[in-house]
Design a protein around this nucleic acid. Structure first.
Lengths: 262, 262
DNA sequence: TGCCGGAAGTTGTCCGGACATATTGCGGAG
DNA sequence: CTCCGCAATATGTCCGGACAACTTCCGGCA
């Protein structure tokens, strides 16, 4: 009988064989763990803005991993905009004062944004998208979706930072009743409940004039400028899981992102 | 005397030693070259939407490189949103009909966007940023910048897709006179002329109401919704090279991006 | 004093190998 | 014929090593 496990402990240590520092019961890869530890160290001030991070070889020794793993971890932190790296010089903490703004350049940061706000919603049943909406979302005209709408705010009952319409793939209809308002995103809840993974998010951002319903919900004047963000969530097979259309008041919301060159 | 070169050809081929398929006079890394070839093959229809790309080991053989190099190349294509990958299953071409929109999720795609439009500008000399602007751009109040303004359009003389104010670091003032209008970005020209590299771009996106000057230049009504994009370009040392403030008409411009989970 | 060149240190590129884990297809058992 | 399980195959994780290219610093030389 064969028992599947992450790592097999053998008596004879073969040089060059993968051997975790401590047995890895958690399923997350080592480089994610290293990245998490470094991120925490930056976050709690152990490494301050402008400080030099330990060199790759030092991190290898300290965490008991190879340079591959360390570089993969550092690559993640760089993609998050927390560090800056220069050949020959080293790795420097440079967050650009990121915490104050809403950084949204990958799915992880999308979650971070959602975690800082509350989402209240109600379910409206199944709708069929007309030609205009279908073209805008690049889905077949007349396709059917479970329709929800809601309001996102920083503190419960506080001023709204967004009003949203959400359309969920009807094959997931049975899970819609289990969705709960709060700080967790809908796509996260759907993924956990139905047992799949969000592999890609596409976003379209435009400036539009507030309609009557949006203006009222956001507390702005009619025809005031609002930022409209359309997000399309896809699973591993490219199937659309969820579409969300969010409208943010122009005077209260800024979408921030960054891009680092390799 | 020591002559620096990328690779040294030795008589005795040591197994496992790096040895380029063909002598690499170009300075670009091998994985960039592989990525470029694959991107071209996708672009010219050699691999169509939904097709399966050759496996990693096939690409290793075909390009005469290691799996490390192939994976680095594929990682780039995935970041660009051209392919989708699944463990055990393979790599599939999935561009999501990207060419029709303006994808802007890294510096390379920023260049692609700029290449599809013309930028005409004029130089206004040196200005000092007031407190409001300084705070918005996160630079010291009262700092001095070379001020330019201009209009971006798809075809020369055609309708404007943006009006921009640009602020350039005064240490680069001597290069400003050499800037030329057209399809090449200003930061690209500055980097080439002054011999540095743009390492990071930060972007803030908001919806605002068009002011009188913007409305006239864009051909929209006053107080019409416009998308305001503030970009801060930094070099390797984190110094601000250029700040650009672009206003795009809401009815003619959509900012598209995507985000793929590893 | 000032400049040049080399040594040391650091990240970038690249290799070959090994094993883990997910998917797919096929054949055998029922 | 259907379903289970295994083999083949593909990508993901991880190792150790080697060399390239760039920075920084320091000492020697003019």
């Amino acid at each position: 009988m064969i028992i599947k496990r992450n790592y097999v402990i053998s008596d004879t240590q073969i040089p060059g064989k993968q051997m975790p520092h401590r047995p890895n019961d958690a399923t997350s890869p080592r480089y994610v763990q290293v990245a998490d530890e470094l991120r925490a160290a930056i976050s709690n001030g152990q490494f301050g803005e402008g400080d030099q991070l330990p060199t790759e070889s030092m991190l290898c020794d300290r965490h008991g991993v190879s340079r591959f793993t360390v570089r993969e971890a550092l690559r993640r932190l760089q993609a998050e905009g927390l560090i800056r790296r220069r050949r020959g010089s080293g790795t420097i903490v440079d967050t650009g004062g990121q915490v104050l703004r809403q950084p949204l350049s990958d799915i992880g940061e999308l979650l971070q944004y959602a975690a800082g706000s509350e989402f209240l919603f109600s379910v409206h049943g199944i709708v069929s998208l007309g030609e205009t909406s279908a073209a805008e979302f690049r889905v077949p005209s007349g396709s059917r979706w479970v329709h929800l709408s809601g309001i996102r705010s920083i503190s419960p009952g506080g001023p709204a930072v967004a009003v949203s319409d959400v359309f969920i793939n009807p094959v997931l209809e049975c899970y819609v009743a289990g969705l709960r308002p709060g700080r967790q995103t809908l796509f996260e809840q759907l993924a956990a409940a139905a047992g799949f993974r969000i592999a890609r998010v596409e976003q379209d951002i435009r400036a539009v004039a507030a309609g009557g319903r949006e203006a009222a919900a956001l507390g702005v004047a009619r025809r005031a400028p609002v930022l409209r963000i359309v997000r399309v969530y896809r699973d591993d097979d490219g199937r659309i899981v969820e579409i969300s259309v969010s409208s943010h008041p122009g005077d209260r919301f800024t979408y921030s992102m960054h891009s680092d060159q390799a």
